[in-house]
Design a protein around this nucleic acid. Structure first.
Lengths: 343, 343
DNA sequence: TTGAAAGCGCTAACAC
DNA sequence: GTGTTAGCGCTTTCAA
């Protein structure tokens, strides 16, 4: 590969002049003739600036880091789209780090985090969907680069992008109520994130608004580590509902669990939606491949991805960061897993 | 952040000594006392080597690039696991570039590819599952860094990792035959890759071995751009089979399409597997969330991902590259979408 | 308008 | 053993 030096030699100018012409230089400070000579030389030599040298000199990499659950976790694809698009549009590379790895331990995570945050390889870091334990708090706090958290708030990092999680669950309650349901259950998640809390809170508040009674027996928490492991949230609901009977509808707060809930129901001979309606919070591509197809509450996940990248880039450029909640209202995506309750 | 210089000052030695002690230096050429002073100083200053400076100096980034279809394509998650794991184990970062983007055009792809291959940001590039058109051939050929293609062979790049695609389809044919099927159809893909060709070839050869007749009417090609768009592969098979009747079993060569095929069948009132058995080539996580759950032919996708990373790293270190086919034999993962044909 | 020179932070050949 | 020095490829003052 040719370098600035080669171009300079061929164009018979100093490398600084080449640099000015080829990069910086918004004001085009260079004689037209020189410019042309330099550009011709660069073309002839197929010159391409070395990004690493540039990064070292300018102390910025034009790359952002993304910490995500195992990349292969197919539960958050929509948001990833938004991140990819926004990064591409901004001309930033994406250095992706899988988090909840099979076989990854606390020490290796520590090391990866320190490396990503402090060793100059990225200009900023996005933490998306991955749950990072308190043990890593000091590392996050002493980060050299700015951090934006996606899909939940954090007291540590005053920079986050979230969506109207609570309202989404309320919307689900309303939808089910309008179909005639009053016996509504809830499968949540165990993680201690604001998102999980907001959704649960939305459930209580939605039920209250609709004048419905919340029954502990109809509530359980995921995740579904293994649907074959026996003790699933659905199993626990069935178990504890023996006296009062089953709910006629279930809100599944984690979209990742919803297909598994449906699948487990079909194994148990529970017909969806005839015996029980199921609605997932958050819309994803794979809601279309379950059977019956999953009714969901859409949330602006793609926008959340985009916005998080934009915020991070702003932060890199020195702007103050804030917690931001996207104003987009949740809405029902009607498919086949919800219907009127059986008489 | 502190630099070598800071550490050197604090330890009252030259920066080169610090560098030797903290990095290089397998032989530990340093007085024990000096070592300790340096290490103490580094700890006190929380010194971390700047990766960018290191990269510039050593002309290697310890990062590999990954070109993949839209990251959010949930069809190749297993292999991604293998890639992530292997990269992590080797201490390499993963710079991920989404390829078949909504809204990405030929020019921007060109630019991204040139950047990734030539600007020193990665030591090598993995092209996984993404179909890269011939127009980009010159760019690939003039790459500064080595390239490994995953999941297909390419005349351009003499370095690939593939699996026993043909044999997988043969295995599927055998499985269906053993269940009593003789009317077997095939849904393939249109892409002109060796993988697509190998699978098709495996179908012909498997059918021949079993003494079964291949009927054109029972064959079609995906992909499923949109299951709602009307003209799906399944529709075309149903259409052209009017005279001779439908097959009793369908091999779906693209695992991405299989859930959609099943879903379309249920919409059309075709019961799986009673009316028609369905088997997918390649096993994935979401085979478990379709209903009925999808029977598949397992292929070593995770291993393919690992192997590709290992090969790439070898190439970076100067080893000669080859086309490599993983020796692992395909095997049936029995779930609920295949069964004996209706009498 | 252009060139000279310094330096981003690090490594490694060479000298002492 | 340890320091000196050069330089990876680039950008950006400062001088001319």
């Amino acid at each position: 590969m040719s370098t600035l030096k080669d171009v300079a030699r061929l164009a018979r100018v100093d490398i600084s002049t080449v640099s000015r012409v080829l990069s910086g230089d918004p004001k085009q400070v260079a004689k037209e003739e020189t410019r042309e000579r330099i550009i011709a030389a660069a073309k002839a030599l197929e010159y391409r600036p070395n990004q690493v040298a540039r990064s070292l000199r300018s102390q910025s990499t034009s790359t952002i880091g993304l910490i995500a659950p195992q990349l292969s976790d197919f539960a958050f694809t929509t948001m990833l789209n938004g991140i990819e698009n926004a990064a591409l549009k901004a001309g930033k590379g994406l250095l992706v780090v899988g988090w909840d790895f099979r076989g990854s331990n606390s020490d290796s995570k520590r090391e990866i985090l320190l490396h990503l945050l402090n060793d100059g390889i990225v200009d900023g870091v996005l933490i998306a969907f991955a749950t990072i334990g308190d043990e890593f708090a000091p590392i996050l706090l002493s980060s050299k680069v700015p951090i934006v958290i996606v899909n939940r708030k954090s007291k540590l990092i005053g920079a986050s992008v979230t969506v109207k999680d609570g309202e989404a669950v309320k919307t689900a309650v309303e939808h089910l109520t309008s179909l005639g349901h009053s016996r509504i259950g809830y499968i949540g998640l165990k993680a201690g994130t604001t998102t999980v809390a907001d959704r649960l809170e939305g459930f209580y508040s939605g039920m209250k608004t609709m004048g419905l009674e919340v029954r502990e027996e109809w509530m359980a928490s995921g995740p579904y580590p293994d649907p074959d492991s026996g003790n699933t949230p659905l199993a626990s609901i069935i178990d504890s509902s023996k006296r009062i009977g089953l709910p006629t509808a279930l809100i599944v707060a984690s979209v990742r669990s919803a297909p598994q809930v449906i699948s487990e129901m079909s194994e148990r001979g529970i017909k969806v939606p005839l015996d029980m309606s199921v609605i997932g919070i958050g819309d994803t591509e794979f809601a279309k491949i379950t059977s019956p197809k999953l009714t969901t509450v859409w949330l602006p996940f793609e926008k959340m991805g985009q916005k998080s990248v934009e915020m991070l880039i702003n932060a890199v450029e020195g702007k103050e960061l804030i917690d931001f909640k996207l104003p987009d209202s949740p809405r029902i995506v009607l498919r086949d897993s919800t219907g009127a309750p059986r008489q």
